[in-house]
Amino acid sequence: MTQLALVIDLNVCVGCHACVTSCKEWNTSGWAGTMVDHRPYDADPTGTFFNRVQMFEVGEYPNTETVHFPKSCLHCEEPPCVPVCPTGASYKRADNGVVLVDYDKCIGCKYCSWACPYGVRELDEMQKVMKKCTLCIDRITDESRPENERKPACVLACPTNARLFGDVHDSDSAVSVAIRENGGYQLMPEWGTQPANHYLPRRKTRIQIFEDELERADNPLKKEAPLPAAEGETLDDVAY
């Protein structure tokens, strides 16, 4: 079975919000109708977004690290938001695992939003129906597009390539390899929702260098000193 998902690399994300704006642009102009904006140019603008980029500070000054944290529907494999919906408007697609809302069936009761621990469902204040990330279902299933464009808008927009898209059930897909080899993890695993989206942690590349590797006893460039060979064998002569 296919389970499409995003893998978000927190090591690479710079928090530029390009995914947020491209998501809004694509989805507000799409077949499903606008995503409302209220008071967009006033002091307290509010509106519907499928994707938000948040920022967390880890540690205490001066030893802090900034984590930019994009968050959208994780397309859970056990989505708790689906069975609670009284109308059947919320559903999980059998063919590709994308969790969707049928805006023509939704009565705006908000019950599904209570049943999602991640806070990614938003009631549209104009249409009064529940909205959330669709993984750009209209793009990724559009066979008339060339293969490399059949990706969510956010993935195409990300300038640092922090967002990978693919089938997490296919062990050889780029997303599965990334999860496997770079420590991909799920959010709030304690609820057993099995989010399909994964995050790659912040990673540090370190090389270990010992003192004697910096100051080689037999450093041939120290011309002024006598070559150690003249003084008999050193460790470097036997261990290479």
């Binding site: 947020v20 008071r39 006033d42 948040q54 920022m55 500070e57 939003s113 959010l187």
Partner: peptide
């Protein structure tokens, strides 16, 4: 907060939720 963003550290603080004027959430 640790399980929410998946970072193992006792001191995590949110610095921005990503928007200013409130949302459904």
């Amino acid at each position: 907060l640790q399980t929410a963003i998946g970072v193992r550290h006792t001191k995590i603080k949110q610095r921005s939720m990503g928007f200013m004027g409130g949302s459904f959430n």
